[in-house]
Design a binder for these strands. Structure first.
Lengths: 284, 284
DNA sequence: GTTCCGCATGAATCGATAG
DNA sequence: ACTATCGATTCATGCGGAA
């Protein structure tokens, strides 16, 4: 496999070590890296997920290649969660954030994925784990963010609240706490959509029945809409069953997928082909 | 103020430095410490909330007294959030977790408080911040946890939310959550109550009240039910307007409250008296 | 009593401007 | 160059009074 100038390297699933695959891509060629790296001690067979003590050292070679191939205004989103080990949450995620900042990354935000239908189970010392991090890293403060593309329907409160406005609603009313905060409700009349928060409520249903995806398609789809535009390049170095690539295709972005396992890159590949086929069918 | 053997030191609000107040309590005398310490650079007037770089050093003297006065099977719950500084989330919360583990604490869990009515605002690089940590620390693996006391009705579980919320709230949530969890639902048929997850959905309240609370009463109430029994001792060393004490009283636990500010300890005190009075009225 | 409606409030954050 | 202050932006809730 060689890097080709005519961009034939795009929209493909590679199998192999993601570091080596990424080394073949030029500097600043990717707009968004969104991925769910193997968690410590999980999915050992597939990726050789390292023990938690070695997790940071294991991950840094990946993050260094991320830094090189990411465009200056691009973003990295890591879906990850500290698992419970010997009765405690392990600290490798915290240590990873600190280590990546030392290497030059900006840790802009910690989006929370609230898993509405988290896996059931019962333990004596904890409840079901219903959330995961989506860590947002960038190279620069002025990264690309297209907030309008992920607006959501305004809350039901608006229907009642905005029907009739009082006197104070029509003028700007300043908060008393010196926060400098005020409101002008006239701005809200007719508004149907608002910006979301940093908490994402998504279910863990995976479209692919044969092979469970670690995250639902809606998760990468959301970040793809938020941080890229049509025709941009989205990379997932641990693509698994292909979810990120499918989300990218549906959003008309270019994708690059890598998976260590030959089996999984095959699965991802056929999932990709399936998606393209069904899109072409719809167009007819 | 002196420590007295007949336990007159319980069910009181103290004003002063919490470290010094705690030094007067005996070893292993508290079942639960649940508190919201001042965040970095916030509430400077009230507590002298330290700059983020000094946060860990500032907090460790408190955590050491916590360790001494906490019963072996007791718990500590810290409600805290890293704020955004110069375009990044600051790492002082991560560093605090790592530092407390080095001092012997077990970091058992990171409960997430999802703030449904997060502070509004718009920025080019992030959305509204709608969640906070509730860090759970213990001294031992076999700490006390009374899971049955916080079971929720099966319908409420669908959205992962707690009971005791407004009516509007339930209407809204039901309409939104029709997707996703149908598959698992069959497992739960016949069960009336189920265990919650580690994500708590609560609104901040403070509208039209004399004093503002940093967290809603339901937050400490939940952890009090989960980690203590009737007659146990609950401490909040940064009690503010008294929310934790009120939750403890209503749950028939003993409380100790401390606040650096004389004004706030007065406010907390009168809130406590008000609560006791209204409970006695109900009994008649 | 119950529902409806007015309204004030909140651990916010960034960029520009001033000292 | 570095810090301090200021203005701009924004969503959902519960309380309390009215219908």
């Amino acid at each position: 496999m060689k890097f080709q100038k005519n961009k034939k390297y795009l929209n493909r699933i590679y199998s192999g070590d993601a570091v080596k695959v990424m080394q073949q891509f030029p500097d600043g060629s990717v707009d968004l890296i969104v991925t769910s790296p193997p968690y410590a001690d999980r999915r050992k067979k597939q990726y050789g997920g390292p023990p938690p003590e070695e997790y940071v050292e294991w991950f840094l070679p990946f993050s260094r290649e991320f830094y090189r191939i990411l465009k200056p205004k691009g973003s990295v989103v890591l879906n990850i969660k500290e698992n419970a080990i010997r009765g405690e949450r392990h600290t490798y995620v915290l240590e990873l954030i600190i280590a990546m900042r030392k290497e030059g990354w900006l840790w802009v935000e910690d989006y929370i994925w609230h898993k509405k239908n988290a896996f059931p189970g019962k333990w004596s010392n904890r409840f079901r784990d219903a959330w995961e991090h989506c860590l947002h890293f960038t190279k620069r403060k002025d990264f690309n963010m297209y907030q309008d593309s992920v607006k959501v329907k305004i809350g039901d409160w608006a229907d009642g609240r905005l029907k009739s406005l009082g006197v104070n609603d029509k003028k700007r009313s300043m908060s008393k706490t010196n926060s400098g905060f005020g409101r002008q409700l006239t701005n809200w009349v007719g508004k149907r959509k608002v910006y979301p928060s940093n908490v994402l409520h998504l279910s863990t249903i995976s479209a692919n029945k044969n092979h469970c995806a670690v995250f639902p398609e809606t998760l990468p789809a959301w970040f793809i809409k938020l941080f890229t535009r049509k025709g941009n390049v989205v990379l997932d170095p641990f693509i698994g069953s292909g979810t990120t690539a499918i989300a990218a295709i549906k959003a008309k972005r270019n994708f690059i997928g890598v998976d260590f396992s030959k089996l999984y890159s095959k699965i991802a590949n056929s999932a990709v082909k399936e998606t393209i086929k069904s899109i072409q069918k719809t167009r007819k």
